[in-house]
Design a protein around this nucleic acid. Structure first.
Lengths: 204, 204, 204, 204
DNA sequence: GGATAAGCGAGACGGTACGTCAGGTCTTGTC
DNA sequence: GACAAGACCTGACGTACCGTCTCGCTTATCC
């Protein structure tokens, strides 16, 4: 996925790992200080003590820097849960997703990346392929396991189920003002119950 | 919503309706030509034959211009359907929403506004209050009617139902590349069936 | 020569005389501090407390700024001498020219402008028309007066006389290292004597 | 003049004559294509298929490359004429000098080198010592021969004579726009006649 | 009807960042 | 050690917009 094989055998100076990390760290710092809108490649280069050219050489846009920085600094890996039952797996998946999004810095970055993806079609493609699809694939594993166990409700396609799951998560991420009101405890309950066909709970 | 009472009694020249419309038209034109990212207040003023100050006097950001332009040029009013039954109303609501979003220009504008709302907290507030809440309120009427008829499935709160409806719509809007693959016909079917409790438990 | 009529009657804010002078002063200062090669429009804007765009709006290159700065700060006007005789006028012209060139700052600027004129054809044209031709015209007046008095030696055309006068001055300017060795007192003597036909054929 | 003795006895790889010639040829080519202002060491290295370091190792500035390239590609040697008389020698010297300067490529290079010498004191020293002084020395031989034959007009010092000769040549080189109007045939006539004390010709 | 008060198109202003170019330096592996 | 390759930090380029601030002018209301 990174596109360069670190140039084994090629002539020329090798990419500086030091600069790479400095750039990612600077991006994170500046993001925390002033937010994504105020982030600039100029600023990242200055803060990291590198040259603008070095940033442009390896990342096409500031959003790509942030995407990689997020992956380096934060553990974005949401483990694919395996609790033995579909309801359990789905609850675990939802809980982990909401928990991650409740981290203020992560919340802001997710918003910024999705926003940037709308404004820059090139980054949109990279974001879909490198982030959104991976998350869908993770949920896909859960759904496949459930299908193998014949636990899936019959009337919901895999696509629509995933759209509901990620739709609700992203809608909450994009339309709430702070991490506090991202979710109430009931949301994941209701959602999991609805999607797994359990009609146990009674809503408020 | 516009905050001034057209200055009844105030001295001074009145706001030029001609300029207002020229600005909104220019915004729409430029948006269609080059996309939201390339849109600028400078460009809107130049294209509309007005001064930058005139734009800044009435709209805080380019997103606000676009939001108003969209309302003027396109009929954003999705009528609150009243088919007599919850399933029918919900289907109609979903169909109208997806149909609107399938208009290429509207699709792009919706994406741009949601994106801008992420990057500019001030516009985010205005967008939520002036657009998102209105749509939720419209759906709310449908749900209230259904509640009065006791058609609501017991395990889904109003909030979660709305989150699922708008979550799926927005997720599709924000993550598909073109109007073509925004929805297949089955999506609204499945969604309406799921949320109204129809087919629950029956095999596919 | 300035190309704009200060916009009497035109709409829009008028050019800031304050900024104009600040830019010219900054150019002179930076030139004295670090030399022409280190001079940049970026630096001029920063030092003068103006924006780069303001510099670019009114001057196409840094050389044009320097040319105008020189005209403002230093009195480049070499009066056309009228001593009553061609030898006297020519001596006065030469003395004034060498004296001006002996001013260290002026010497450096003259060099830089002539250099820039070689590298940038557009500025070359402006420099010829706005500076070199004026100096030739001044000498032309002296030669015309001499012709009217029948004092001109018969074998030298006006063009060649001017080429010798300015050729020697510029050659000295461009090929000596410092103001000190720009001229010895004998140079102007010899040159004037030669061009006016005095002493011709007499032993030294 | 180049300062290294090709490393007799030194260890390590010897300088590549192939690279040297490729660099000089690339400099000439690029100069002809885009002019001196657009010439860069980066571009020379790329065009010649060498590394930037190789250029920097052997030449301090692009002007030094051009100076050497000119010497390699064009025969800059103006033979010291010996026609038997001072007027004949001087005419021959002037004619050869103007003829060389009339070669378009040479004209451009001479301008560029003189320009660069103004902006870069280090190159200025090298240019004076390696080029200008050599030309003065050549003229010096002519003048010495004339002195030995007692042909020199008494009132002109050697220095001033040389200043007039090179002053006029360089002034023409630096202030005319194209090779076409560098000289009319009369210029060398008048100049030679004036400097040798022959008062034969009548100017136009 | 004259004073006062906006709004208007125009456009200059001080800024910030863009994305690019080249400068000159420094590895890296090969010759 | 020189060489081709190429990454590095630096700094300037010229441009695009930002949001603000005059300008001269055009409506409006009010005294």
């Amino acid at each position: 996925m990174d596109g360069q094989d670190s140039g084994r055998g090629r002539p020329g100076r090798r990419r500086s790992e030091e600069s790479r990390l400095a750039i990612l760290a600077a991006a994170i710092d500046l993001l925390a200080e002033s937010g994504y809108a105020a982030l600039s490649i100029e600023g990242i280069a200055a803060r990291s003590g590198t040259g603008k050219q070095t940033v442009y050489r390896w990342w096409p846009t500031k959003a790509d820097v942030v995407l990689e920085a997020l992956a380096v600094k934060t553990d974005l890996h949401i483990p694919i849960p395996d609790t033995g039952s579909y309801p359990g797996d789905l609850r675990a998946f939802l809980d982990a997703s909401f928990a991650l999004a409740r981290t203020p810095r992560v919340l802001e970055v997710l918003r910024a990346l999705m926003a940037h993806a709308q404004l820059d079609p090139g980054f949109g493609d990279r974001f879909r392929a490198g982030f959104l699809q991976r998350r869908r694939a993770a949920l896909g594993v859960v759904l496949e396991r459930a299908a193998a166990r014949a636990e899936l409700p019959p009337h919901l396609s895999t696509r629509t189920t995933a759209d509901i799951v990620f739709g609700v998560i992203w809608y909450r991420v994009l339309t709430t003002t702070g991490p506090g009101d991202l979710t109430d405890p009931a949301t994941a309950d209701e959602l999991a119950a609805e999607l797994t066909g359990l009609l146990t709970g009674s809503p408020g």
